[in-house]
Design a protein around this nucleic acid. Structure first.
Length: 234
DNA sequence: GGCCAGGACACCA
DNA sequence: TGGTGTCATGGC
């Protein structure tokens, strides 16, 4: 099992190249983006991030002071803006209550402690919590999203009704525990999902299966799938 | 013009 | 716990 998971990672990295996640200027922006991108395309989130930057409120004190109503107006492009404004507020309120607004102090907490605290915040579920832990706090936590479920179910690694924690444990138990690997792997899964794995039902010509099977053997030079010269550092 | 995004929560049985 | 409705913009 370990080798297959690593092989798929290598295939994806060769095929797509490094994804450079998370696209953000600082850790706070990572967290805000993680909340805004819930069930929303990243392009829409970028517009909201720009709005927040232009208003100079993309920082703990800025979001702490701004009204929920005005905040909702700024993040309008990223869908469900009223509930997301409340979610952002609830996170920042937590940050001030527990850590006096000190983000670095929050991020320096132990993995499990911080995960429990994040999950306790209204509006932050398992995927958002793990995204914050991995990409903002650099904790060894694998992120599971809809693409991960869909793709690895189709590849036959997990059951249709596997729980979030079951899938998370599957990845963490079968991969070298490296933050850099976790970050890149999840980003590559999302890239694969966006490009090849929409919601259509499983079929024999599933592009994901196809990609993996083709890439597991030596590619002829005439193959349309050309490996990129990226080196691996697991 | 329709479909659906890098989820989470409330409410129901 | 599992299934379903709600939220409500903009890109493709």
């Amino acid at each position: 099992m370990k080798q297959e998971l690593i092989s798929i990672y290598k295939i994806l990295l060769n095929h797509f190249g490094p994804q450079g996640w998370w696209p953000a200027d600082d850790e706070f922006e990572v967290i805000i983006g993680a909340i805004l991108t819930q069930a929303t395309s990243w392009k829409n989130v970028e517009k909201s991030i720009d709005n927040l930057k232009n208003e100079r409120v993309l920082n703990p004190s800025g979001l702490y002071k701004i009204s929920t109503k005005k905040l909702a107006g700024l993040i309008r492009p990223s869908l469900y803006y009223n509930v997301k404004a409340k979610k952002l507020k609830s996170f920042v309120n937590f940050l001030y209550k527990e850590y006096d607004g000190n983000l670095n102090l929050m991020l320096s907490q132990a993995n499990e402690k911080l995960r429990t605290q994040l999950l306790d915040i209204w509006g932050i579920g398992p995927e958002t919590a793990d995204s914050i832990l991995l990409y903002a706090a650099n904790k060894k936590t694998f992120v599971i999203d809809a693409y991960t479920r869909r793709i690895f179910y189709r590849l036959g690694f997990i059951g249709k009704n596997s729980s979030y924690d079951e899938i998370k444990n599957f990845f963490e138990g079968n991969l070298p525990k490296r933050v850099k690997l976790y970050k890149e792997y999840h980003a590559l899964i999302v890239k694969l999902g966006k490009d090849y794995c929409k919601k259509e039902p499983l079929c024999k010509e599933c592009p994901v299966r196809k990609l993996c099977k083709i890439s597991l053997i030596n590619l002829p030079s005439s193959s349309p799938i050309q490996p990129f010269p990226y080196t691996l550092s697991l």
